[in-house]
Computed example of a mutant assay.
Amino acid sequence: MPTVEFSDAAYEKLAFAAKIAGVSLTEAVDRVFGTSNQAPASDNPQHEPSASEQRQDEIKVTATYLGRRVTGYLDLDSERLRITEAPHSDLVRTFKSPSQAAVETVRHLNPARKRPETNGWRFFCAEDGQLIERYRRR
C-alpha cells in the first residue's frame, strides 16, 4: 500500500472527520476521493450521505467568484449551507448560513479584499440560476 504524508494540520482535520463519521482514516480518505467501497445507502441502513450527495429538504446551489466555482447544498429547514466542491479545501464544510459561507468564500478566494462581508442569499444561486434569497425564511 502506498504511503502518503500529510501536514499535522491536515492529519488532525482528517482524523476528526473520520472520528465524527465513525470510519477509519483510510475510509475517510477514500470518501474524500470518491473511491470508497462502502455499500450504497439502500444496502446500508447506517449510511451517511457523502459530501456530494443531496439530502432531503436541500437544494443544490452554486456561486462563481473571480471565475472560480463553489458548489453546495442549502438546507431549507435550518438554512445551513454545506459546500461540497470548492477551489480551496478549507471551504468544503457546513456553514451556519449562506452569508457565512459567502464571506468565507470571498476571504479564501480574494485574500486582498479588506472587507469580505457578503450577503450569501444574493451570492449563491439555485440550479435554475435564480438567487437563493427566495428560499429565505422571514
Rank of each mutant, 00 (worst) to 15 (best):
P40G: 05
G129A: 02
G22I: 06
R122N: 03
P2H: 10
L25N: 02
A126S: 10
L131E: 01
G120P: 07
R134P: 01
A21P: 09
E127I: 07
S97I: 10
I83G: 08
L131P: 03
T71D: 08
R31P: 04
L25A: 03
A39Q: 15
P49V: 08
G120A: 07
R68W: 14
T118L: 04
P98F: 15
S50A: 10
L109C: 01
W121R: 04
R93K: 14
Y73S: 08
E12F: 08
L74W: 07
R113V: 12
Q38T: 11
A101C: 05
S42I: 10
E58W: 04
D75L: 12
L109W: 03
V29C: 06
E79K: 00
V70H: 01
E133L: 11
T62W: 02
A15E: 10
I132H: 02
D30Y: 05
R31F: 11
Y135S: 05
T3I: 08
Q56N: 13
V103D: 08
D57A: 11
Y11P: 02
V23Y: 00
A9T: 15
R82A: 04
A51K: 08
L14Q: 00
A101D: 02
D77K: 03
K96T: 04
K13L: 11
V92Y: 00
S42M: 08
D90A: 07
R107F: 15
L131F: 03
L74S: 07
E12I: 13
L74Y: 07
E58A: 06
R137P: 13
L109T: 03
D8L: 11
S52V: 12
E79R: 00
Y65H: 07
V70Q: 04
H88L: 04
Y135I: 08
S97F: 06
E12S: 10
R55E: 03
S50P: 05
E48L: 15
A9E: 13
E5H: 12
E133R: 09
L109P: 03
I59A: 02
I20G: 07
R122C: 00
